[in-house]
Simulated assay, not measured.
Amino acid sequence: MTAIPTVTLNNGVTMPQLGFGVFQVPDEETTAAVATALKAGYRSIDTAVIYGNERGVGRALADSGIARDELFITTKLWNADQGYDSTLAAFETSLDKLGLDHVDLYLIHWPTPARDRYLDTWRALEKLYADGRTRAIGVSNFRPAHLERLLGAASVVPAVNQIELHPGLQQRESRDFHARHGIATEAWSPLAQGAVLKNDAVTTIAARHGRSPAQVVLRWHLQIGNVVIPKSVTEARIHENLDVFGFELDAREIDALDALDRGMRTGPDPDTLN
């Protein structure tokens, strides 16, 4: 298997460009799924408080025998925990569940603009970063307007913005903003929960390469520069999602997938979720 490429974040930390997500995986199934992913070769694992499976991730990490410095672990602060002191407390709870003394990336999960706490929350993330409790800090589901406000008050520029992104929702405005400010774009729901996999353009390209539609879409993400975290609990698909380095999409194929943008969300709107 070809080694997973990395992206260098704006603080010099390297992050695998392809990782393993555990959204919607019950805690009791998470340990086995993460163990399978680690055995397959994944080294980046993405979880969150609200997923309820940080302990399951931690069990798999502890059982893996993989050196801590070979792993890249991301978790996220939930909305109800936003605020300076509550963020610091929530972070300690996450570390305890994961069984770690630090994480590699800590994210504010949603901007929750009606709560209006993400500036205080970011100050807490900056403290955690300064104290070496997390190697990088970032946000998730922030629109450019949220980021503009954050950057106006921040001492540390977010390293990552993790957003819903797939051929049906390409988020060009956000990606352009990220590029201008040195923020890595990370895609959640990279396959639109399967909604894009039956598209004619996707299936045609897949047949041409002798690959699955999911592999084609993941390859598109990688070639346009996204960090991507597909999720599965099926061993065959966990392996399939990692096997995306033995082929390349040409410019016409990239253009065909770029043409699929429909503004199609599978998840909440960041401006209204609180």
Rank of each mutant, 00 (worst) to 15 (best):
A67M: 04
G41A: 09
K76C: 06
A130I: 01
R133N: 10
H146L: 06
Q82A: 04
L95M: 14
L88R: 11
E29K: 15
T47V: 14
N141F: 07
E126T: 07
D69K: 15
E92F: 02
T74N: 09
D96Q: 15
L61W: 04
D63W: 05
D96S: 15
A145V: 14
T87S: 15
L107K: 09
L125A: 01
T31H: 03
K97I: 00
Y51E: 05
L150A: 03
R43I: 03
R59Y: 03
T87E: 03
D101A: 13
G58Q: 06
Y129Q: 05
R123H: 12
I66H: 12
D96F: 01
Y129W: 14
G83K: 08
E126S: 07
V34Q: 06
T36P: 00
E148N: 13
D104N: 15
L105C: 13
G58W: 02
L38R: 03
L107V: 12
D63S: 15
A145C: 01
L125D: 01
F91V: 10
L128V: 10
S64I: 12
I73F: 09
L77T: 11
L38Y: 07
A35L: 04
A124P: 02
L107D: 06
A90P: 06
W122M: 02
L147M: 13
R117Y: 02
D46L: 10
G58Y: 04
L38V: 06
G56M: 03
W122C: 04
R143Q: 13
